[in-house]
């Protein structure tokens, strides 16, 4: 198949199993959400896909090809990218430089020693359009560390989009974003190219129901169930486990 295919993925930290026989597919055009209580293993799952962590067993395929042996960087080049749950930016660099880096990297330009990094026409155009998409144009020349946390989350998202991935994983993109800005996140997700495969991890159910067409529920490292938003909302086990808890 085309897209991402995860088959029988397992991961244990010492005695603690955080991924238990996980099977998930993510085809072009999919809009899936991965939900589950704190510590269920959602972030760990994203790290296994992107190659930050190595699974104990299981297979990860992209367009039918086993990518389990590829390095993190190679998987990015193959089209898989994610945002970090805990913002991970180039703090001392300006917002523009933070966006330039993935753009230059995507075009294979970061090996260049001669030209100035802010003089690549195509890159600069994309930097500006990402800035305006996330309403960051005013603060483009500010070091990222001087931005409010919510704005840093936006940079986080913009940087990942700059990679133009085919498989996009968003780990709690809206966490920490003030409600005034959170529509920007939903907007950005809805505005993504239709053929992109998206997996979004979120605790904010409003956002989940707005963007997801299918929902996967993860509990203690194992998939409890998968279904449409309606099916998941109606599922008693999920309600008990997750929605029940968060809605008191």
């Amino acid at each position: 198949m085309t897209g991402l295919e995860v088959i029988g993925l397992n991961k244990a930290f010492g005695g603690l199993t955080v991924a238990r026989d996980i099977n998930i597919t993510l085809a072009p055009g999919d809009r899936k959400a991965l939900i589950g209580p704190n510590g269920a293993g959602k972030s760990t799952f994203t790290n296994l896909i992107t190659g930050i962590l190595e699974p104990t067993s299981g297979e990860i395929r992209l367009d039918g090809r086993d990518i389990g042996k590829l390095s993190e960087a190679q998987r990015v080049k193959a089209g898989i990218a994610k945002t970090f749950q805990i913002t991970n930016l180039f703090k001392s660099l300006t917002v523009r430089d933070n966006l330039r880096l993935p753009l230059l990297e995507r075009r294979g330009l970061t090996g260049r020693l001669i030209r100035r990094s802010d003089r690549e026409g195509g890159v600069e155009d994309e930097v500006e359009s990402l800035l305006s998409q996330f309403r960051l144009s005013d603060m483009g020349d500010r070091p990222v560390e001087r931005l409010a946390y919510g704005q840093q989350r936006l940079v986080e998202m913009a940087m990942t989009l700059a990679l133009k991935p085919r498989i996009l994983i968003l780990d709690e993109p809206a966490a920490g974003v003030p409600s005034s800005e959170s529509p920007l996140i939903a907007e950005a997700i809805s505005g993504l190219p239709q053929d992109l495969a998206v997996l979004v991890i979120e605790h904010d159910m409003a956002l989940v129901f707005k963007v997801a067409r299918r929902i996967v529920v993860l509990v203690s490292g194992a998939i409890l169930t998968e279904g449409t938003p309606e099916e998941i909302a109606a599922d008693a086990r999920v309600r008990d486990l997750y929605l029940g808890a968060s809605h008191g």
């Binding site: 930050i52 703090k91 970061t110 260049r112 020693l113 700059a162």
Partner: peptide
């Protein structure tokens, strides 16, 4: 240069550099 910018990126966050 772009190479130099990537070096500064590595200083700030090698993990993020790998992720891009």
């Amino acid at each position: 240069s772009p190479f130099g910018l990537s070096l500064r990126g590595i200083k700030d966050s090698p993990a993020r550099m790998r992720a891009i």
